[in-house]
Amino acid sequence: MNFWKAVVAIIWKDIRAELRTKDILSSVFVFALLTVIVFNFAYELRVPSMKMVVPGIIWVAISFAGTLGLNRAFVIEQDKGSLAGLLLAPVDRAAIYFGKMLANLIFILVVELALLPLVMIFFNLSLITGPHLLVLFLGTYGFAAVGTVFSAMAVSTRAREVLLPVLLFPVLLPVLVAGVKMTGGLVDGASLSEMGNWLQLVALYDVGFTVVAYLTFGFVVEE
């Protein structure tokens, strides 16, 4: 089968299943919302301006809730052995990776788009702008690119829920730091061109880890 046809088939399969169950979207959205609310109350009385902490809150909420979503995405594949069904098909392992990764990316982006207006209301900030959305997209792409590989790795272990964040967060640090820096800069009124180094870091991270995942996914999913 054509590589990209297989990728699209896997994405559609995941979206169709998710629209029926709403397993991932509902749990990830509620968890992200709760994270924002908890941080809002935790910081409100101690921080002179919430603007100082909003970038961190957003990226922590995305990474925590996104990890929950990544876990669910592969647990669904593992529980009925359907990942093995995918692996038995005559398609490149990398096509399975891209299908799962892009489906994860879409789910997390949908949750972010639902979450942003609420964050804007909570913290009285404008976050739905081109630069903000670009930063969110690049950071989320890096998160999904790395997270999909680690979640495929962790899903067949007994301690999968614990193992995924333990493996994932150290590797995610560059993209999280860059995401917080850029979101903070944009909240403070800077332009993206003033944060070129951070933008390049995230772009390189995304490309680099996509290539690494492309090359290694087959080894990760086979016994």
């Binding site: 089968m1 054509n2 297989a6 169709r16 299943a17 009925k80 052995g81 093995a84 069904g85 995918l86």
Partner: peptide, 29 residues
């Protein structure tokens, strides 16, 4: 050239019987 039946059904719970077969038919081109 392989058809496999194992202990696990290798199917998707959230898809119908027909959708499952259509999905795999796509993967097998």
């Amino acid at each position: 050239y392989l058809g496999v039946v194992s202990h696990a059904p290798l199917l998707y719970d959230s898809l119908t019987a027909e959708e499952n077969l259509h999905f795999f038919a796509g993967l097998y081109n």
